[in-house]
């Protein structure tokens, strides 16, 4: 056990980025599966029940929007302005929470009907997207909590950067799902 948290060496930073990249890449695979299964099962059909706005466009916009404060926070973390970093992170947290709600809403308000499964691919997509958003938010919150305890700053830069990557991954993969599911 050591009291001082040492800053990462460049090699360790590269290692962490690489590990995260691996994780993110491997998590792209389910998206591909989802999209493929969609074409195999439902072809071009878009369910009348699928909510274009709530389960689709709104989260996409909100998540993309949220990427801005997250990456600004990363920049602030790099130069050590902790306060501004925290403000940006909190902002992103709020945007993300709203996004999460918009993704979960259609799940709750869906009429589950075993006999007409058309459109369920959309619902599953929303669920998967919601799950990833939830994970992203937990990660974000953990960084905020650490920052609140003074464990933030240039030497903790990686945690913030990781949040940035994960956020962007989540936003982009949702965008991809959204476009494929609703527009193609």
């Amino acid at each position: 056990m050591h009291d001082v948290i040492e800053p990462l060496t460049p090699r360790e930073l590269r290692k962490n980025r690489f590990g995260l990249l691996l994780f993110v890449t491997s998590q792209l695979v389910p998206t591909f599966v989802l999209i493929n299964v969609r074409f195999m099962l439902a072809d071009e059909y878009v369910s009348a029940q699928a909510d274009l706005l709530l389960g689709g466009l709104l989260p996409a916009l909100l998540l993309l929007l949220g990427a801005i404060p997250v990456w600004r926070a990363v920049r602030f973390a790099a130069v050590g302005s902790t306060d501004r970093m925290r403000r940006q992170l909190t902002l992103a947290g709020i945007v993300g929470l709203v996004g999460l709600v918009t993704q979960i809403w259609p799940l709750i308000h869906h009429r589950y009907d075993a006999l007409t499964p058309f459109g369920e691919v959309h619902l599953a997509s929303v669920g998967v997207g919601g799950f990833f958003t939830l994970v992203t938010l937990i990660l974000l919150y953990s960084v905020i909590a650490r920052a609140a305890r003074g464990q933030a700053g240039p030497e903790h830069y990686w945690g913030v950067e990781a949040t940035g990557f994960v956020w962007s991954f989540n936003a982009l993969s949702w965008l991809a799902i959204y476009i494929v599911m609703f527009w193609l």
Binding site: N16, G19, L139, S142, R146, Q151, W158, V166
Partner: peptide
Amino acid sequence: MSSIATDLLGDSPSQ
């Protein structure tokens, strides 16, 4: 996932 991100923080001050 969070464990990857926070990995290298190491152990916090021991009590």
